[in-house]
Design a protein around this nucleic acid. Structure first.
Lengths: 173, 173
DNA sequence: GACGATGTAGAACGATCCCTCTACCTACGC
DNA sequence: GCGTAGGTAGAGGGATCGTTCTACATCGTC
């Protein structure tokens, strides 16, 4: 992926994150990408591809933001993950999870569903690897999803709650 | 609300739940509502109003489905709530929460945000009243939200996880 | 200094969208 | 028997959409 592809992907991601998947026209996306319409269509030959391009870029950035360079201790790592998810919401995803938004906008698109599925699966896999509790990856996923969805409404109180939940789970289950 | 208003609201809700908020045209919505275009516009004078009509109807049905006639015992009530949320997902919301989908489709619409907020607030208020734990309404909300978001991917394993989380919370916090 | 590759700017097309409007039908109270 | 309220069916306008295409600028390379 060269410089212009990266610039397009980042611009598309930002446009969809800010305005949702229904509203932005291709001309809006062109402005956000900072290239001409011809170049935009060269790298993303249809609006559907633009959506996928944005989501793939989003996935890479999210994974890196949440899981790179975690502390070795399991408890500290879980705590750090929750903090980083909250930080991500605060700075990047004030409108909620971009993958769920994309699928919600086009519920019958199998490609988008597959993208959502593989994104969430990788988050779950990495989170389970950190906690070290095999077979309990759903628990951690549920907490992360709950935090992601609750944060826009409750802010940092949702982080406190997520931390309390993960603590109770490790102590009692 | 007379019979025809109810018919329109139910049809709109079904159309948006099945196809998302971006895809269905007003003609699709007319077909789903089972009335003429003129009558549809009489009761919902714009497409935005059709969205709000659907969400208000959804809210009433969801609240009734999850919270009506709960058992008196707190533990049994929490368990029943989680079962009913899962049942709702299974039968009605296989594409996820309709309110989040609506806001995701139009992130800058303040009316939709207010509808989402008041819907989630009433769910949280009623759930907190059932658990009897004042000041802990965020915990129960986070579990319900996590279950709602995880169900489309994990199915009943998400219910098991939500139940384990609520149990751990009551025993250890 | 010509040239091909790769970019920009934006006009144009056909389709579709939301919404309005006309024309007609049916049920019912007086 | 007739007027009125409230319904259906569907054509049409004006705007916007996604996509394609033409015309021109820029830059590194031979």
């Amino acid at each position: 992926m060269n410089a212009i592809e990266l610039k397009i992907a980042a611009g598309l991601e930002r446009a969809f994150a800010e305005n949702g998947f229904a509203e932005p026209s291709v001309e809006d996306l062109r402005d956000a990408a900072g290239v001409s319409l011809r170049t935009l269509y060269k790298y993303a030959p249809s609006r559907d591809v633009m959506v996928r391009t944005a989501l793939e870029h989003r996935h890479r950035r999210y994974i890196a933001h949440v899981f790179d360079d975690l502390p070795g201790d399991a408890d500290a790592a879980v705590s750090a993950i929750l903090d980083r998810v909250a930080g991500w919401m605060r700075r990047e995803a004030t409108h909620g999870c971009l993958f769920h938004a994309a699928v919600a906008a086009a519920p019958h698109d199998p490609t988008l569903r597959a993208l959502l599925q593989s994104h969430k699966a990788e988050v779950a896999r990495r989170a389970a690897a950190v906690t070290g509790q095999a077979g309990r990856d759903v628990d951690m996923t549920l907490i992360i999803e709950g935090l992601t969805q609750s944060w826009p409404l409750y802010g940092d109180a949702a982080v406190v709650s997520a931390r309390r939940l993960s603590l109770a789970l490790r102590q009692c289950a």
